[in-house]
Design a protein around this nucleic acid. Sequence first.
DNA 1: TGATATATTGAATATAGGTTCAGTGAATGA
DNA 2: TCATTCACTGAACCTATATTCAATATATCA
Lengths: 192, 192
Amino acid sequence: MTRKEQKEMRQKQIMFKALELFVTKGFTETKISDIAEALGISVGLLFHYYESKEKLCLELVKMGVEGTKMSENAQFDDPLQYFEKTLDGLLRAASEQPWICQMFVLMAQAQRAGMPEEIRSLALTVDQIRFSAGIIEQGQKLGCIRDGDPLALSNAFWCSVQGIMEYHAAVPEMPLPETRWIIDILRKDQKS
Amino acid sequence: MTRKEQKEMRQKQIMFKALELFVTKGFTETKISDIAEALGISVGLLFHYYESKEKLCLELVKMGVEGTKMSENAQFDDPLQYFEKTLDGLLRAASEQPWICQMFVLMAQAQRAGMPEEIRSLALTVDQIRFSAGIIEQGQKLGCIRDGDPLALSNAFWCSVQGIMEYHAAVPEMPLPETRWIIDILRKDQKS
DNA sequence: TGATATATTGAATATAGGTTCAGTGAATGA
DNA sequence: TCATTCACTGAACCTATATTCAATATATCA
């Protein structure tokens, strides 16, 4: 293994363990030494790769922001289908790769007051709710999404997803819901 | 005002401000001095009323546990109606009294790893999800709640509520969803 | 009114935990 | 092979903040 490969591997290792701990214990509650210990490396080595706990978290949030922007580019015919596809993908991913759902949770944590300002403002650049409200409006015109304030509907949907991801990050053994249960928050005429 | 009244008022004052800050900033991220400053009192006074930050939080969690047990005693005819009544009450309360929704959020925080053990174990004594799963099972037999793993359905419902409360605690100006949108996670045949 | 109890303060203390750094050993490459 | 670079260590350092405490002000009550 070349030096470069080794370096990238270590960085990845550190990031994913940090993500796991930040999400299960919380950012401030996670000690740098917790991460180091969990990986069986020294505290000093961690600072060799990341100049601070804050920068490490920032790196994770950057990753999350990119992931979100990505998903906003998904193509769809039917607006309701957009949510179906997105949610189905998320739930499938969450059940297989813990880090996807953890990432989801981290992004919410990062938006809270009390987070380092640089992290917080970056996290606040994603606004899934407002973005989806536009698609919901389309769906309402087409008659596949129920009536009501699009922003409130979008909020209801994404908050539900958020809650589910959060709980699954903490208690992975709890069975995840089926996509269509959550989609029915938005669907106009149930019974498919 | 008598001494006793004054004492109770101060304690309430401190508890509610602490709740607000614990929820918006996080437990560890909230400094004792933040609470004191926000109330215009000294740090020392806070310790006169609560022997530690941990005990203060514990008091809040106790309050939350009692509230939850209370709501479990609600009477109902129709299982679906139980959820409707409960959620409607919660949403109504959340929009009027911030602390109710904050309390909801605190309970989730308190259950996380990384919290002081005494707080965590107390918070873990409430198990809304498992409790509601029983009611969901009844509803399925009666045909008013959709088929599927009752535990997973209960999880979906309460996680959604959790997510909504959490977001509303952070961004109160976002309009809350309507009860029936969330109830439709559980409802068997939509279109009322 | 005086004596006691309680509310209140803020400076001093203790400690946890993020960060630094001087040093060791192993890989790389000329 | 030798020199250089980089991975890696863990103890020392430093700061932020929970907690303590001695002192003061105010209320209660006999």
